[in-house]
Amino acid sequence: MEPSQTEINNNLEKYSIVWLDVSVNNEENMVAQKKLRSIVNNLRTFIGPEEFMNYARSLQQGDLTILIVSGEMGRVVIPEMQKLEQVYSIYMYCFNKETNLQWSRSYSKFAAGEGCV
């Protein structure tokens, strides 16, 4: 039996997306944000790791958060995010695929199997 549109929407409501990148507000990323907001209602953006880390630590149990992070910022926050149950998965948005794959493979929440998205 196929899920109803209401069931699909309710499942999507359980997730939030957090995007950490110094360039999160450039024109290209704003287009991507618009597309993401058409799928998931809760999208928060951060340009600095400190503000993001404070937010991430305040997430409630049961929250399911997907993190999109640049390779540079990922090195700073992924080790800590690996410990938080509320961070469901991590996707890296980067241009230096090979370098970032080398250090990120050991983290189980790193979900971009092909590397950087």
Rank of each mutant, 00 (worst) to 15 (best):
M81F: 00
V76C: 04
G74A: 07
L64T: 05
L67K: 09
N41M: 01
M81I: 00
V22T: 09
F110V: 13
N54K: 05
E28D: 12
V31P: 03
E28I: 15
Q61F: 03
S108T: 11
V18P: 00
I66N: 08
L59S: 07
Y93R: 14
I39E: 02
M30W: 04
A32R: 05
I17R: 12
M30N: 14
F95H: 01
E72M: 09
C116N: 10
M30G: 05
L20Y: 02
V117K: 15
V40M: 01
L43K: 04
I78F: 06
E7Q: 15
R75S: 04
T99R: 12
L84R: 14
S16T: 14
L43C: 03
S58E: 08
W19M: 10
V76E: 12
S70R: 03
S106D: 04
F46A: 00
E2W: 10
I68A: 05
K83L: 04
Q82D: 11
Q5I: 14
S89H: 02
R44D: 02
Q5H: 14
N96E: 06
L67F: 03
T99W: 03
Q61P: 13
K97C: 04
F110N: 09
I90Y: 03
K83I: 03
V77A: 01
V24I: 08
N100F: 00
Q86N: 09
L84N: 10
A56L: 01
I78Q: 10
L43P: 01
Y55A: 13
V76L: 07
N9K: 14
V22G: 07
L43I: 12
F52W: 01
V76K: 15
K35F: 09
I8F: 12
L43N: 05
Y107M: 06
K35L: 06
G48C: 07
E13V: 02
R44P: 00
Q102V: 02
S108P: 07
P49E: 01
I8H: 02
M53F: 07
V87F: 01
S106R: 15
W19F: 15
I68D: 02
V117D: 15
N10V: 01
E114G: 14
G71S: 05
I78K: 06
V117C: 13
N10D: 14
E114H: 12
F95A: 02
I8A: 04
S89A: 15
G71R: 07
E51V: 11
N10T: 13
R44M: 06
K97M: 01
S70A: 11
I90K: 04
S70E: 06
S38L: 06
G113A: 10
E13R: 11
L84A: 05
I47V: 06
E72K: 11
L43R: 09
K83T: 10
I8G: 07
L84F: 08
N25P: 06
M73E: 10
Y88L: 10
G115Y: 00
Q60R: 08
N25T: 14
